[in-house]
């Protein structure tokens, strides 16, 4: 379903007037996806009805809500950051060791929306020094909404979207320009597989090492949450990891999970799972945010999976030395790569 041209123009003008944001033609899906929850929340059937209501009478509160819904990005790259740090710095090293015989890794991004989460996971994997090219990795990205999946498959993001949560070093490493947008490079896209899936119904997917099921359970009734968690538990490998949203838990819903702290974030595991090998301290910065692997101007952009050891950057200062990051990459030492 797509909103009418008139409704799109109305929202577009509203954004330009009140948030100085230009919404280019072709972004109807963005208006739909951002405004549908608001329409539902106030008891309207669709975005067209929401726009019609504002057009029919001045309503400052509603206008503000619409602008906020359009400018507040509910999903962004590396959203909440901590789960991704835990994934890169603790879970991937742990699983790389445990899966050294098979060199296979399966990660599931449930409710992947417009794709930022699975691509963030994929970027973390591609950047990880232990993930050499002989690993068979798949990030399964599912969503109920086929339109959202199609958008995610396109892997194309606006300037506003790549400004959110994505370290610029990762932007230049893992994206290429596509007119005024940015598109995820094939090396990252290639490990993500999209599939339509309704979490509230029985599903058949492979066993998973890590599951990102974040900010989904909050939309379900308690009885559905129990069912979803039971199904998720069945496909989570015995020593796998489950991430939920910050406001979600398995407590009181599924006692076969136990809560573990990974750095400053929480993950869930099967009760009695083998202990993980945890690094003594996790960096607060997004792993791979370090600029040491930046391409030189004029060089071919895009990563080679597992081809470069990338230091985990620290968010602390001081700023880089003159000539950095290329000076650091010449030295090729972890400590110099890690400076920022």
């Amino acid at each position: 379903m797509t909103i009418t041209a008139g409704a799109f123009t109305f929202v577009s003008d509203l954004l330009q007037q009140h948030a100085a944001i230009v919404l280019s033609p072709g972004k109807e899906y963005l208006v739909e996806s951002r405004l549908m929850p608001l329409a539902r929340q106030i008891g309207l059937d669709d975005v067209g009805a929401l726009v019609a209501r504002l057009q029919s009478r001045p309503d400052d509160a509603l206008r503000r809500q619409i602008v906020e819904a359009m400018t507040t990005n509910e999903t962004s790259f590396f959203r909440d950051r901590d789960p991704f740090n835990a994934f890169s710095q603790a879970i991937l090293p742990d699983l790389c060791k445990e899966r050294s015989a098979t060199h296979r890794l399966n990660v599931w991004s449930a409710a992947c929306s417009s794709g930022q989460e699975p691509y963030s996971i994929a970027m973390s994997i591609v950047d990880h020094p232990l993930m050499t090219p002989d690993w068979q990795v798949e990030v399964l990205a599912t969503d109920l909404n086929e339109e959202m999946l199609e958008r995610a498959r396109q892997a194309r993001y606006s300037q506003l979207e790549v400004n959110r949560g994505l370290p610029v070093a990762m932007l230049v490493r893992h994206f290429e320009r596509a007119e005024t947008d940015w598109r995820v490079v094939p090396a990252v896209r290639g490990i993500v597989r999209f599939k339509q899936l309704n979490l509230a119904e029985a599903f058949d997917i492979p066993q998973m090492d890590v599951i990102f099921l974040r900010n989904v359970l909050i939309y379900f009734r308690p009885s559905t949450k129990v069912e979803v968690l039971k199904r998720v538990r069945r496909i989570l490998r015995p020593d796998g990891y489950l991430f939920l949203g910050g406001a979600e838990t398995t407590l009181g819903l599924d006692d076969a999970f136990e809560r573990v702290m990974v750095g400053s974030t929480t993950a869930y595991r099967h009760k009695g799972a083998r202990p993980m090998q945890m690094p003594s301290r996790l960096s607060a910065a997004v792993a791979g945010a370090g600029l040491s692997a930046l391409p030189r101007p004029g060089s071919t952009l895009g990563p080679t999976p597992g081809s470069a050891v990338r230091g985990v950057a620290s968010a602390s200062h001081p700023p880089p030395p003159v000539g950095w990051p290329f000076q650091a990459s010449t030295n090729n030492s972890i400590s110099s790569q890690g400076r920022r």
């Binding site: 948030a19 100085a20 944001i21 230009v22 400018t71 507040t72 990005n73 962004s76 950051r81 300037q159 506003l160 790549v162 400004n163 959110r164 949560g165 370290p167 610029v168 070093a169 932007l171 230049v172 607060a284 910065a285 997004v286 945010a289 600029l291 930046l294 391409p295 030189r296 101007p297 620290s314 968010a315 602390s316 200062h317 700023p319 880089p320 003159v322 000539g323 950095w324 990051p325 290329f326 920022r340």
Partner: peptide
Amino acid sequence: IVRALAAGAHEYVIKPFTPDAIADKLALLG
């Protein structure tokens, strides 16, 4: 972007941006 980073800029925000984008980047920078 690569030129600016090579010269020593830490982060990069492309206009247009939202206030959240600035806050996000400042958080990334610590």
